Computed example of a mutant assay.
Amino acid sequence: MANVAIHVTGGIATYKIVSLVREFQKHGDVVRVAMTDAAEKFVTATTFSALTKYPTLTSLWSEENADKIAHIELADWTDLAVIAPATANVIGKLANGIADDAVTTTLTATAARKVIVPAMNNHMWSNPAVKRNITQLIRDGYEVMPPVSGRLAEGYSGTGRMPEVNDIFAFVTQATKPILKDKKVLISAGGTREQIDPVRFIGNRSSGKMGIALANEAANAGAEVTLVVGQITVLLPTHPQIKIIHIESTNDLFKTISNEFTQTDILIMAAAVADFEPETVATQKIKKSADNDEFLLKLKKTPDILKTVGATKKDQLVVGFAAETQGLLANAQKKLIKKNADLIIANNVATPGIGFASDDNQVTLLERDQDPKQLPKMTKNELAAHLIKLIATKIN
């Protein structure tokens, strides 16, 4: 049981914090709430007071508990502070040491663990000032749970949406259990690009969401993570225990993984890797001509990264993904044996609503001498948490 202070700021996701309060209470924690003026435009302080059975701190000048300095009393009481949803405004204030309301003043006085959950429009989230402020908060000891991609209040999709309540709770509780402490984890994410000419390339629709979710979960579990990223459509993680290496082609990825693998305890190949590349690359843009209606492109195999590292592993754990459109289990089982992997995570990317570019996934786990285990459909963050726990069990 812990004393959890939830600091609520003014965003459309504020209504979800009612469920977050309940989630902590359901697991035996004692919850108190502080709110900004803007947060009260969405949910009243009375709602949180009724749920927590404690006064909701909304002002530095409240006459309740006049015998105490309210924000200091709450700060000293706190074992865990969660700031959700965290607006760009409050992120900027905290990063720059501004304490001008009940929330920022209490957090400035709080010595306990602090987890911040940003939520805002995607353009705001990608703003350089917000990025700088997030980096500063991490340096100051805050843990940051990045927003997810999804439909925003403005009516279109983008990265900035607050994660679901169960994902927030899992993030907070997982981070308290360093199940991969002192382990080095190498993860690939995103898609590769194989150049045809200076303008064109062969690529795929991978967003990088799954690999980045795994990197965040592994870092929260105490691991030292190296994330090798190709082409992605989401923001990179900002966790201080994640080192990021950028690559473009399959050959780039092969060289990087080969170099890093010898110092790695766990390899998770979540990237969508091209199986073929052009045999030759044109030095100039290939032009259409009036007398030629066809263009023939000759391809050759790319290096088999998973097979190569699987053949050289020692006491290391090797995990691969199998994105299939048919023969899911048969193809994944062949991959498990042929690549000498310890675990293959298979999914049918032809199924609507899962796989490439989606926030959700549904996978089947394949291990040697075990029956395949199909998991229910879940968010990629939930799946990442499940997989990191499973991987930690195996490596330990």
Rank of each mutant, 00 (worst) to 15 (best):
L336H: 03
F356H: 04
T325F: 07
G320W: 03
V319Y: 10
P352A: 06
T308H: 15
A330W: 02
F356P: 03
T364V: 11
T364D: 01
Q362T: 00
L336D: 01
K298H: 15
A311W: 05
L306F: 06
D359S: 15
K307F: 08
A323P: 06
N381K: 12
V309Y: 10
M378E: 12
A385G: 13
N331E: 11
L297K: 11
K313W: 08
E382G: 02
F295I: 11
K339P: 09
I344H: 00
I354V: 13
K301S: 14
A346R: 04
K377V: 09
L297S: 12
Q374P: 07
S358Y: 00
D304C: 09
T312I: 15
D342K: 06
A311P: 00
K380D: 08
Q370Y: 01
Q326D: 13
K314M: 04
Q326T: 11
N340S: 12
K298Y: 13
R368W: 12
F295Y: 15
L366S: 10
T312Y: 02
Q370M: 12
F295N: 08
Q326C: 00
A322W: 02
G353L: 03
Q326F: 02
S289Q: 15
A385W: 15
A341E: 09
K377H: 06
L299N: 08
M378D: 06
V318Y: 10
I345D: 08
D293F: 14
V309H: 07
K307T: 14
V363A: 04
V349C: 06
F295T: 06
S358T: 03
L336R: 04
D293K: 14
M378H: 08
K338M: 02
V319D: 04
A330F: 12
L317G: 04
Q374Y: 00
M378R: 12
V309A: 02
I305A: 10
G355L: 01
V349Y: 05
